[in-house]
């Protein structure tokens, strides 16, 4: 029984770390610009494919950071070329990013076909059975966990301890207030897209290395990001991290005690409960100003 709990905690922790990576970028963009970036999943997919391509020719340790940089730039470019011109209108932004997501699927289909592509960030696994935990965890999952917390830590430091980061935080609290204190909103939004892109790229590499890349792999992460962000409170990074763990563990509970076919059901029930009774989420702010 103790071993079962150990297994559940380990697997819940591993998957939740990846979920947090998926959701933070999405929530940051919403918090700062009020934009629902539906191309967030496409950027994650981009991370997986770019890494798959790069890792064929260079070592994974080189391909990983390069992929993050490429996706960060792509995300920044998406903001500069498209989103900044339409972000004033929520519906148009919503549609424009959906179109980007769908176009990216078509592009990937055209370029790589519909078959899954596997990739290796790091190979091998550790058998934890001698320690009473029924799991043979892959090294790539440990990497995912470490990278996730590293990213969360860096982001937290950036947001709370640097002027640059504090301007992002200020913009997410109150744009008018931020502007009054001399924050350049456009620059802040550009930076947010860059950071969100880097996080999406990281998530893409981890997802691609665990399950392979396919042209529709962006759908599930996007749906997850939505659920996590609603539960955590729209715009709250802390909320997203906590909600990612809530969802990750809920899923583990469901598959352990109910069955693998019911994996996502409980999360959806929780989502509905939140929407009905706590629409601001765990750490959402009330939008009193403006």
């Amino acid at each position: 029984m103790l071993g079962d709990i150990g297994t559940l905690v380990l697997q819940g922790t591993m998957i939740s770390a990846v979920y947090a990576l998926i959701a933070i970028g999405f929530t940051m963009i919403f918090g700062v610009g009020g934009t629902l970036n539906l191309a967030h999943g496409a950027l994650i997919m981009g991370g997986a494919y770019v890494f798959a391509l790069l890792s064929r020719s260079v070592h994974a340790a080189v391909a990983f950071p390069v992929t993050i940089a490429v996706i960060a730039l792509l995300s920044w470019g998406l903001y500069q070329v498209l989103v900044r011109w339409v972000e004033e209108n929520v519906v148009i932004t919503f549609l424009a990013t959906v179109v980007v997501a769908i176009a990216s699927t078509e592009f990937v289909l055209y370029q790589f076909g519909g078959s899954p592509i596997g990739m290796t960030l790091i190979s091998g696994a550790v058998n934890l059975e001698p320690y009473g935990i029924n799991a043979r965890t892959r090294y790539v999952q440990f990497v995912g966990f470490v990278v996730s917390w590293l990213a969360i830590g860096l982001l937290w430091y950036y947001i709370t301890h640097t002027d640059d980061g504090r301007s992002v935080l200020a913009a997410s609290m109150s744009e008018r207030g931020a502007q009054l204190t001399g924050v350049d909103l456009h620059a802040v939004r550009s930076k947010t897209w860059l950071i969100a892109g880097a996080l999406a790229g990281t998530a893409g590499v981890i997802l691609g290395s665990t399950g392979g890349a396919t042209p529709l792999m962006w759908l599930n992460p996007l749906a997850l990001a939505f659920i996590i962000v609603v539960i955590g409170g729209i715009g709250s990074i802390k909320g997203s991290v906590i909600a990612a763990y809530v969802i990750g563990f809920l899923e583990q509970f469901t598959v352990t005690f109910v069955g693998h076919g019911f994996r996502g059901i409980l999360s959806l029930v929780v989502l509905v409960v939140f929407l009905l009774y706590m629409p601001q989420g765990l750490y959402g702010r009330e939008f009193a100003h403006d």
Partner: peptide, 18 residues
């Protein structure tokens, strides 16, 4: 077991089989 076609984390599946 029947697995969800909407996305499955194989970690716990492999543990259960094992």
């Amino acid at each position: 077991d029947a697995l969800s076609i909407e996305g499955t984390d194989f970690g716990p599946v492999m543990s259960d089989i094992n």
